[in-house]
Simulated scan of single mutants.
Amino acid sequence: MLSSTPLPTYAPVEPGWLADFAPIGLTELEAAALMDRSEYKFAFPLAQLPELLLAVGGAYRVLSAGGQTVQGYLSRYYDTATFEAYRAQHLARERRHKLRWRLYRSTGASFLEIKRRERGVTRKTRVPAPHPQPTEQAEFLATHAIDPTVLRPVIDVECSRITLVRVHPTPERLTLDLNLRLISPETGECHAFGKVVIAELKCPGALRATYFHGIARQLGLRGGSLSKFGVGCALHYPQLKHNLLLPQLRQLHRLQARNA
């Protein structure tokens, strides 16, 4: 059963933290959707969030949807009984995909989304989906050679998200995920990382060509691989091989413990 309760707030996002950001609406955001993009991830302590927002203020705009600048996200990821998608993620295969149903709580919109990674580029496609049932979207999945009848839910990911957008001169989208919870759809067991922020930069090309690259260096942030889907599966299914994900797991646990 998917949770319908609001996410807990470990540390409020003070209104002043986002005061320097002009708003951007969903319509304008879709015009710079970056469905084909490079992605770079950074994890850092929640206590550093005000410093980061101050550093990028004025250069980005903040998404405002449903009157909120902090959005609630809920994603359910699917995989086969043999965890084919997870195994491809764990081995960092050049060509791989993830399938998820995502609910945007601030607007109530929900989609079935496929994220494919090929040659370092991530491509996202999606279709409106009112229910977390892939079999209801069999026609869409068939066009991507995915059989929904062999899928099952394996991990639920909940978080609160701030979305920052830079349109000119080159598009960038910086998402900041707070209150991360990785939940087993079967047992309801939850691993929470409320003291950690996961930043993800989405851009057309190389990190060094982005505005955020300079900010990351200024703040001492190092980009790397960090998959919420992969980490969630590794935590909830210990029988799966996860040695290649150990650096990501250790980083999350270290940041959480250091700021507890």
Results as ranks from 00 to 15, higher is better:
G120L: 11
T163D: 05
E158C: 08
L245T: 04
L18I: 10
Y77A: 07
R119Y: 13
C203H: 02
L34S: 05
A22M: 05
L26Y: 04
H191M: 08
G108P: 08
R87E: 15
Y73Q: 14
P8C: 08
A145M: 07
Q248K: 14
P171C: 11
H97N: 06
Q218Y: 12
T210V: 02
S106I: 13
T170N: 02
L91W: 04
V157R: 02
K41Q: 10
L103I: 00
L7K: 01
Q256M: 07
P185I: 12
Q239T: 10
I155G: 08
F212I: 00
A55I: 00
D79Y: 12
R95P: 06
H242D: 13
I183T: 15
E30Y: 09
H213E: 08
Y60Q: 10
N179M: 04
T170A: 06
G188H: 07
F193K: 06
A145K: 14
G120T: 13
R181Y: 06
Q48D: 08
P204G: 13
M1S: 12
A59F: 12
W101H: 01
A88Y: 04
T175H: 15
L99N: 14
T210S: 05
T210I: 01
E28K: 02
G188K: 01
N259I: 07
E186S: 13
D156N: 05
T175S: 14
A59D: 09
S227V: 09
N179Y: 00
T175G: 15
S75P: 06
V150L: 12
S184A: 15
G57Y: 03
A142M: 01
T163M: 04
T122L: 13
A22R: 05
A209T: 06
L34Y: 02
R217S: 02
L201H: 05
A206V: 00
L207H: 00
F44D: 08
A65D: 12
P153F: 07
E136G: 09
R166P: 00
C233F: 03
P45M: 11
P171W: 03
T210M: 00
C159W: 07
V231R: 02
L219G: 01
H131K: 10
H144C: 15
L252K: 06
M35K: 11
R208H: 08
E189P: 11
R100S: 09
T82Q: 13
T5Y: 14
V154P: 02
T107I: 14
F44R: 10
H236Y: 08
G230Y: 12
L178M: 04
A33C: 04
L226C: 10
R161H: 06
T27I: 14
V13H: 10
K41S: 06
D36I: 07
P169T: 04
Y237A: 03
V62M: 11
A55G: 00
L141Y: 12
K202T: 03
I24P: 01
E136K: 10
M1P: 00
K195Y: 13
Y211P: 00
N243A: 13
V165K: 04
I183Y: 14
M1K: 02
F111E: 09
